[in-house]
Simulated assay, not measured.
Amino acid sequence: MRVLRWLPFVVMLGVAAIDLLAGQSVVFLPLLTLGPAFASVSGGVRRTAAVGAVALAICVPMALYNDLLFTWENNLTVIGIAGVTAASMLAARLRLERERELASVRQVAEAAQRVLLRPVPRRAGDLRVALSYTSAAAEARIGGDLYEIVTTPHGVRLLIGDVQGKGLAAVETAAWVLGAFREAAYDEADLADIGDRLEASLARHLGGEKFVTAIIAEVHETEMALVNFGHPPPLLVLGAGGLISVEPSEPGLPLGLGAFDPTAAKAYRVPFEGGDRILFFTDGVIEARNAAGEFYPLVERSGLLRREDPQAALDTLRADLVEHTGGPLLDDAAMLLLHRPRH
């Protein structure tokens, strides 16, 4: 940003220097219009006007040096600088108004997303819970990552998902999914029935081929039951050593696409005993790229999850993810880590 603020003055001084070095045979003064043009990119209306005034202040003595003062060539240059300055001032004003509108929309979307994604409990039953949510870059707007953990008469149940698309439409879809899950998690005894409730809710609100990838899970004493709706499989970090990608036996379609395959996604079970940890995540984690275009190697970095404190372990993994990309993420990245302590 600092470079952009000084760029108009550097350009105008450069034009003046080149004009002096070229002598009176070649005149570069019309290029002074680049000053106010560049100023409108990062500056306000007053700053753009000031840069235009500086351009005129440079133009007059340079025209005198080139014996062009009050000639029609120089008059056209002055008119050009004034015209470009006026147009740049208008462009700067429109840009600032647009930036304010976008900032307001983004704040509304972020507030709505914070209301939807209530703070998850740090303990649920005998489990310790860690959460990491990394917002995407400003260009990506607001994403549709969602998560929830509830303790029900049927046990601890959780949901993690990712809505197709960005912006307020994705936040609205996430609201429907979370609302349906929070009710069904208490009412339904079977995980597959919860999935049916979510599918029915989305069928009433989603149009076209929009969808939501998700995982619904239920924790038991020594195992965990899951239903996967086209979502990246979680990673099970065994307390005894080892790593398992918890792939479903029969892949299910994302929520919202149930009409294309009437076969309901089926629940499957994995061991989840004392000392084990399981990481649920959205595709913003594994699709994060570095400058060379390489995806984040989550499996290779899974050893970071073995730190004693689950939240510290997840924070370390998140820091490693951001370091891998070398800058803001292009998609939201949500991670949910469950740890079952040894009794």
Rank of each mutant, 00 (worst) to 15 (best):
D193Q: 13
V322C: 06
P234M: 03
T85N: 07
Q113E: 05
A180F: 09
F295T: 07
A217K: 09
R269V: 14
D67C: 00
G326T: 06
G179C: 09
S201P: 00
R93F: 14
G230C: 05
L69H: 08
A50I: 10
E223T: 14
R95Y: 02
A17V: 14
G208Y: 01
G125I: 10
L338H: 09
N66G: 11
A63F: 02
R342P: 00
P232C: 04
A37R: 02
L94A: 15
L13H: 01
L102P: 00
A50K: 00
S132I: 01
I278V: 15
L96M: 11
G44R: 11
F280L: 11
P233T: 04
T173N: 05
L158N: 09
R340E: 04
G303S: 12
A91S: 13
A112I: 01
R128L: 14
V41K: 02
E308H: 13
G83K: 06
I58L: 15
R47Q: 13
P254S: 08
G256P: 08
R5T: 11
V219P: 04
A264T: 14
E209A: 13
A334R: 01
L7V: 07
G165F: 04
S302W: 05
A225Y: 03
D196Q: 14
S245V: 14
E110R: 05
E209V: 08
Q113Y: 09
L34G: 05
A334W: 00
V78D: 00
P119I: 06
L336M: 07
A92T: 09
V10S: 10
S302N: 01
E99I: 05
G83F: 10
L56V: 12
S88V: 09
G52A: 08
L238M: 13
E250H: 14
P271F: 04
E323N: 11
E273D: 06
V78E: 06
A55W: 08
A192P: 00
G179T: 11
A50F: 09
G275W: 10
A192I: 13
R128I: 10
G125S: 10
T134E: 15
V51G: 03
L117A: 09
A57T: 05
I18Q: 07
T134R: 13
N228C: 13
G144C: 06
V246M: 15
S302A: 15
H343V: 11
R100N: 08
Q107M: 08
G43S: 12
V177K: 03
P232M: 03
R307S: 11
V15D: 04
R95F: 07
C59F: 06
H205D: 05
Y147F: 15
V285S: 03
G35H: 09
L68V: 03
A87N: 04
R106M: 01
G80I: 00
A55K: 08
